[in-house]
Design a binder for these strands. Structure first.
Lengths: 191, 191
DNA sequence: TTGTTAGTGTGTCATTTGACACAGTGGTTT
DNA sequence: AAACCACTGTGTCAAATGACACACTAACAA
């Protein structure tokens, strides 16, 4: 809960009352490693706030490979935006990679919240705007850096992800093979 | 102008009155190939709607290479979101790759619009949401497909981009070298 | 204890790629 | 016409990568 409070303060400076109001709409859930948050082929009707732990967001490509789309590490929001906002079937699945604490906002409560007041509509707009800016930044990083540079950056900026994720998943996240990531790691055996 | 009308109808179903109101806020501009829309190091204070033509959105990497971020082909919106919403200096530049017709919305008018009415705030929210969904989709495509598959897809879905863009820029857009794209093209010399 | 399973560490090899080099082409300027 | 320019087309070569194969380890279940 504290994680969420801090996260929101950092990003959006809501008033204390707003914060309490928002938190009233959320349900805390402690989940075990392996718990499925949402699944390919189903409609996603919730937004998650990850307070502790890591979620594995992935899908299966046309070629049948399991492909990591994102590793959601606390603190962050997580949902399938297309499925959530447009009611489409999700193409992705999301599974807890570690034990985790999450806060759940259902679509009914989300809609109620957004329609209550312009303030909340603008709040969501800003959150989505920031997410978009981040994703665009990520896209540029992918375009401009090598796998090795991105791996080393990940070690620095998100050590928890590196420590809690298998070579295979991490490789798929970085867009390379298990073997290649292994070679990169071998080069940097001093930390 | 018709392009914008159609585009908005397609994506957001505004009423006729809303549309007229929006269009009143826009200034049409016909620009020549090579015209600079915004530039690295300056604050971007406008949103463009590209009605005809193609814009080249790029930046220079730490290594000094010119790197294509996006090719905005009509009809579409174009801005540097981070610079526009947060007033930061842009890291990117944007130049017309062909002669083009664009509609310009200044930040003052944008702010006025968004603050006029919840309707417009929600309109912008939906546009940004859709943009985010598209970018996420694009990110998945990059992750799951080879350069060759992406090139062939581009030929099908955006032939105007392929026809009006040099091999070098297209290669940089696809994330490969000029030579490699050339090899791919040579493989498919029948269309 | 013994299997079973998931993931790791490592080697080989064919393929793909990027880097470099340079000739050719088409358009523009002087 | 001559010079210049941006871009194309192409060859060579070293390096990086993915695919495959297999032994090894740790965790967990029967």
């Amino acid at each position: 809960m504290e994680a969420l409070r801090t996260f929101l303060n950092h990003s959006e400076g809501l008033s204390k009352n707003d914060m309490v109001f928002l938190i009233d709409h959320l349900e805390e859930r402690r989940i075990k490693k392996g718990t499925v948050l949402f699944e390919q082929g189903a409609v996603v009707t919730t937004i998650f706030f990850v307070s502790t732990g890591i979620l594995h967001h992935f899908n299966y490509t046309e070629k049948g490979e399991k492909k990591t789309i994102d590793l959601h590490d606390a603190p962050c929001f997580c949902t399938d935006l297309e499925s959530f906002t447009e009611g489409k079937l999700s193409k992705d699945s999301c599974v807890a990679l570690t034990d985790a604490t999450i806060y759940v906002l259902t679509k009914e409560k989300y809609d109620a919240l957004v329609n209550t007041n312009v303030k909340w509509s603008n709040f969501v707009k800003r959150v989505i705007e920031k997410t978009l800016v981040n994703i665009l930044e990520q896209l540029k990083t992918i375009a401009n850096k090598t796998i090795e540079e991105r791996y080393l950056e990940l070690v620095k900026t998100k050590p928890d992800i590196v420590q809690n994720t298998s070579v295979g998943i991490l490789a798929s996240y970085l867009g390379t093979s298990r073997e290649t990531l292994h070679r990169i790691r071998k080069k940097h055996l001093f930390a």
